[in-house]
Structures are given as C-alpha cells and as structure tokens.
Amino acid sequence: MTLRAFEATDAPLISARGLTKRFGDFVAVDGIDLDVHRGEAFGFLGPNGAGKSSTMRMIGCVSPPSDGSLRILGLDPGADGSRIRSRLGVVPQRDTLDEELTVRENILVYGRYFGLSKAVVRERAAELLEFAQLADRADSVVEPLSGGMKRRLTIARSLVNEPELLLLDEPTTGLDPQARHVLWDRLFRLKRSGVTLVLTTHYMDEAEQLCDRLVVMDGGAIVAEGSPRQLIAEHSTREVLELRFAVDDHAPYQAKVADLARRIEVLPDRLLLYVDDGDAAAAAVHDRGLTPLSVLVRRSTLEDVFLHLTGRTLID
C-alpha cells in the first residue's frame, strides 16, 4: 500500500502484535500488542527498565524486533525503515544534539537528512526556533543551553520534517517543574494541530496531563490499558487516605484499619487506604483512638493504579 492510500484509511498508525525484543537471553519487551490511532496522544507508563525505550526504538525503526509483527504507517519497518522514518519525529531519551553545530544549524542540518531543500529548511528552522522559544539563541552553540532548552531544541528538530507521528521518550525527565510546564504546553499545541503523539514517562502526572490513552508497562509486558480516567476507575478507588504514624514499621497498623478500606497498601513510611469516602474513613480512624502523625485525603492517581497492579511504586 502506498503512503497516500494508507492515509485515506483509518487504520492504526502503529500496530503491534506479540512484539518482542530480546538482548541475548534477556527479554526486554515481552510480546506486547498495541494499536495507536491517528490524532491520539498515546502513552507508555512504567518504571525504569520496563522496556519503554526498547519499544520506542523498535517503533522508530532503529531496532529490529526479535519477534512478533509491527506495522508503522501501514509499512513494515524491516523493509521500509527509511520511508517510515521520513514520516516520523523522534525525541530520544537522551538528547543527541549535534554539539559541533549551532542551535539553528542543528535544525537546518537535520532537515537536510530528510532531503528537504535548503530554502525549506531555512524557513522551517525560523518557525521552529520561535515555537521552541529559542529564536534569541539561534546562533549560540548547543553546549551552554539549559536542560530545558536542549529538550525544546530536540523537539523542534524532530518536527522539521512535519511528522505525522511524534515519538517522545521521557520528554521531561530531569527537568525542573517550570521547564516541564513549558514543554507540556508545546506538546499540547502539537496535539491540537493534529500530530499523533506517542510518549513514554515514569511520571504519572505527565501521563495524566498528556495522554488520551495509555498502557502501563512493567517487566516488558503491558499490565493494563485505557484512558487515565478508566484506569483509575478500574484499578483504584475514588479516594485515598494516607496515614503516617510515628513508627519505623507501618505493617502492624495494617490490621487495625484494614476493615475500613477496600484495599490497603503498606509503604515504608505510610499506609494507603483505598476508600470511597476519605473523610469518613479518617474520622473512623480517629474514633478507634489511633493518632497518626499526618492524615491526608486525596484522589486516586495513576501511581495508585501502578502500585495496585505491580505492588511497586513508579519512582524508587
């Protein structure tokens, strides 16, 4: 099928069945199935080592799958890697900016790798530098830029070929909160303009903010799939009561409050009670004469979903 014919269909942009990646005997991605549709913002949420980057590299056609089938834009990465890559934008986990070039040249040269004419890359570089709020640094070398600026430049660079599918591997890891918000704002704009986003993250707030739909990955496998809202509804309660006691080990307290909650998680420094009404449960705790150091009622998040599904926290 030609790319144009493919565009007329509503077939998924990415379609994987039993997709597997092995490094020697080690299985990094263990037979995952997924479909990503046009216009979606799709996320992989999982801790370090879950296999997110390995999956992204296979989708980016820079890592051959060990097993299973993978179609990107209706094409086979093995046979048509170059054609697929010409339609993708890639933001790798580690910035791979060209430090021997200036900020502007990074975009110019990258555009030339896609076979774009010099006139076109000049024009797009100017637009993208505006988009990435880097116009005033255009002729600076890359090295002294802040982490957030480098990340924005990497994203700007990945857009030079006007990709229909943008792959972002941990776009905001290592950035301060302000820089993250600037980046999120840029990604929202892209999403509104119709670019399909596929991103990985181990921040549940990022997944909740950006993703229409996501899969939770752990140990190379997909353990759950849905919208952030669906996942929370399915795998957690409406509210969470967090109790912190003045002890080193919270496990003995579990039995004293277990009947108040649908489910309980014991973390090293606190108890998490999964309940429908957090305030009512907190009152019940007090009625039993228990005096926690701190009491917090909050809504369930994807972090709770992950904890429930895997018994571990996302960031250790």
Binding site: G60, V62, R85, T96, L97, Y113
Partner: peptide, 14 residues
C-alpha cells in the same frame, strides 16, 4: 561521545 549517528539513523539515512 557525540552520539552523532544515533540522531542521524533516526532519519531516513541508513
């Protein structure tokens, strides 16, 4: 060190 080809190979170049 520069990981230049990591970025180059993400484009149509092989």
């Amino acid at each position: 060190y520069a990981k230049l080809y990591d970025s180059v190979l993400a484009t149509p170049l092989g």
